[in-house]
Design a protein around this nucleic acid. Structure first.
Lengths: 152, 152
DNA sequence: TTAGCATCTATAGCTACGATAGGTTCAAGA
DNA sequence: TCTTGAACCTATCGTAGCTATAGATGCTAA
């Protein structure tokens, strides 16, 4: 029995991946080239649908294209042990941990800046002050204008 | 008294921003065009140094170029109230909160996947399984090969 | 038949830079 | 003074991961 085939628009709706993105994935080799209808339209089957779902989910989880490529390659070797798959997932998880930690730090900094802001004129604003940061000691905002204009 | 002027490499070392990035910021209008030496090399002053520090710190905090542009515009109006600055910072903080929340969710999902993996062959791997996700009911991995190949 | 949507290819644009090529210029040592 | 090597210049291409546009063709339903 031959399985149902469907158009790119159908595949897009089924997976939630936009049509141009599907064509892009084909172009960069993430999705295999589908057969075409007599009128040259792409025709997809269930294998494409599964593979695209896999890719989409990976992207949501923040995997890069390169990493997805590795995972797809591994998933094509069904009899190998899945340690390598788990390792990739662990690396990804650790990277996410690092990103979350960094973001949380920066969020706190931003929050401190917002709290420090007393609501006066911009030239006295602690947020602007903080954003200039520690520019080497010799540097300070103009006490007259509060801007970065040179006072030469 | 005229302030010290320095080259692009100097500015790069002082701020931790790479030379091509500085030229790029000039090109897109984030940094004002500096004067040139007789030999056509860019010469920067303290105003540039401060402005670049500001930009760098903003980028670290995840502000987009567009947002930085807004902030720079505001910082050039020192007598206006700084509500607008604080508002931009608050929006940025809220966006970061959302990003952190989303990342934390995804991290947990990844972690659950890793924990579920029993370490058998790839065709039975729960991680691969999970990454395919809920592809519409009719779809399942080939029970023989565990891959996405069509079985037509 | 005709409207209106989906599809096709090809190309350009987006953010935020990084890399490279091929050419000057500067500063310091022999 | 010469020479060497680092730093500078412009211009262009490449990166990820798409999105948007233009202009042509195809499909479907009233």
């Amino acid at each position: 029995m031959s399985e149902a085939e469907f158009t790119i628009g159908h595949l897009a709706r089924q997976t939630g991946v936009k049509v141009p993105t599907i064509r892009y994935y084909e172009e960069v080799g993430l999705l295999p080239i589908p057969r075409r209808s007599p009128a040259n339209q792409r025709l997809y089957g269930n294998a494409h649908l599964m593979r695209l779902s896999f890719i989409r989910h990976c992207r949501e989880l923040g995997f890069s294209q390169a990493t997805i490529r590795k995972l797809l390659k591994l998933s094509d070797k069904p009899d190998q042990p899945c340690d390598s798959v788990a390792n990739i997932a662990r690396v990804q998880r650790d990277e996410m941990d690092a990103r979350i930690a960094r973001l949380t730090e920066l969020r706190s900094e931003l929050d401190r800046m917002i709290t420090a802001c007393a609501g006066g004129p911009i030239k006295d604003c602690r947020i602007v002050e903080a954003l200039v940061g520690h520019a080497g000691g010799r540097i300070s905002r103009s006490s007259k204008t509060g801007t970065f204009s040179s006072s030469d």
